[in-house]
Design a protein around this nucleic acid. Sequence first.
RNA 1: GGUUCCGUAGCUCAGCUGGAUAGAGCAACUGCCUUCUAAGCAGUAGGUCACAGGUUCGAAUCCUGUCGGGGUCACCA
Length: 624
Amino acid sequence: MNIEDLIIKGLSTAIEQLYSASADVEVKIEKTKPIFEGDYTFVVFPLVRRSGKSPELTAEELGREVIKTSPEISHYNVIKGFLNLSVAPSYWAEILHNYNAQNNFPQKEEKVMVEYSSPNTNKPLHLGHIRNILMGYSISEIMKAAGYPVVKANLINDRGVHICKSMLAWQRFGNGETPESSGIKGDHLVGKYYVVFESKLQEQTSDTVALALEGNWNCNDEIVQKRYIDTLEKLRSSKDDKQSSKYKGDIKDLVRNQSELMKSCQEMLRLWEAKDTEVLELWSTMNSWVYQGFNRTYERLGVNFDAMYYESNTYLLGKDIVKEGLSSGVFFKKEDGSVWIDLTAEGLDEKLVQRGDGTSVYITQDMGTADLKFQDHGIQRSVYVVGNEQDYHFKVLFHIMEKLGRSYAKGMYHASYGMVDLPSGKMKSREGTVVDADDLLQEMYDTAKAKTEELGKTDGMSETELHELYHRLSIAALKFFILKVDPRKRMLFNPEESIDFQGDTGPFVMYTYTRIKSILRSANYSGESSKTNLTLHPTEMSCIKVLSEFPSVVSNAAEEYNPAAVCQYVLDLAKAYNKVYNEVSILKETDTDLRSMRLHLASQTAQILQRGLQLIGIETVERM
RNA sequence: GGUUCCGUAGCUCAGCUGGAUAGAGCAACUGCCUUCUAAGCAGUAGGUCACAGGUUCGAAUCCUGUCGGGGUCACCA
């Protein structure tokens, strides 16, 4: 039993004894604030009604009692209604003595899938993807540490009009360029042709769009023409900027969709769906370039996957579920043949689940893929790491699966996270303000190299060792910077200012680790444990306290899908140990018992730092 | 407009299942390397927790409203 539970138990017993108020008061303790004396605090206000005495008296009485029943508490003090309890110094020594940093959680039955990354194959990865990837990987590692069997999954969007855009542009303007011939990383090469497509389209249509916005456009297609006129009217009568820019966008799309380029693109998609050999061949060639590129980025980021899903395989799924839902009455059909679900009772709207022409929409696939995932891997829980722009979509999806009676529906969870903003606002690919993942990684690497050389502590390290060091430092700085902020919140990233290597950063935690390792090497430490009847320095006691919190931090982080909690913890531990480092010496200690106790503390701390960092995807180094 | 998330130090962020005098880091200033790695430690300065009400012994935290910002409300994905 850990120290907090012990204290709670002691308090409960004491409360029972004094006031026979057993179950109706929940006994909660919290960490005592540093400005007051003590380790844990019990707030007695809720108890005052039972005791019939003033808060001070109640706290006093309870303090006296608890000290009798709980040997691990040595003394207490009362300030107003706060009972501050101090853990006996000898007890900290005992906790350290029994501490095992390699203890694991018992393996759980419930199998979990974490889906993350899920890129489109028409563009290289950018900073927004990085937040997703880092979160998904870290959540997976945290859940594993908490005892869950985890399947890391990547659902790749490898089909659709947007993919055909790159293909068509390459076909027409590529002159057979390949990653090999150009030396351009595959995903970037494909991304280049996506941009080519967009600019050619812009070229071909800008005049017509301008005319159309003035009301001077005639389309041969009657239906399109009608929609154009309708939208034009709405545009003219719209009152605010937001609305009118939406209608302007609609008109632009109408015009663009009639362009030769877009029509060819649609045609290419039709051929793809009809399994045209030539198109399929181009498609698989260009996708393979993208995967080569993505894999290099994934590898550099140190992430991986256990299961790959491709939308080219899953995009037709879900139609059976639509039928099923229709016959069970969960869905209903409108006159035009489109299929809907009514979620107004849940406070949502009616939602389309299949188009009038019988083709799928996004959510149709998602329903099918949900079934597939559960069938494939026998999972009980499915976590989707997807940005908060899709909050509504997942709310709907989960309601649907629930209504369809899927047993796994309650195990579906959307790990939603905020967008990454630049000082100028949102990243926009149109305006070229996206921060490219590979560029960013390279900049981080260069910064890590420069900082390390500036400090000049790497004498005797080989080229490969140095490279590995710069790599790990850069990844640590980036991961920590991104993961330490609460996932729900949007975060600001300033590419002008390089990410810090000092203060609350990944390298700082790594540094604490390497200093410990340096001591352990000098002392030839070989794992001896510590005795219990020793006088600990106050900094050592606080460090042990932090160590004792590791298991609850991991299980909370897993429960909340929150890597930031681990970042915060690992910082606390590093800070706590740095204080020890500054206050007490190990190598100069002549008392052998004290020396081994300190070595044991150092070693346990290093191991927990390493494990904690590993949960956020950061690898330690022995020297830096 | 409906709905949803957010607003804490100059900047980036903790704290939010209600508890004491709201914490870190960066930036600024001051100390500490003949002493286990100074990517460190100690200290100074910096706040009407957006605003207004309410619930409570007690509110940054819960409720309501206002203001400000983002998302979303597609037969797009």
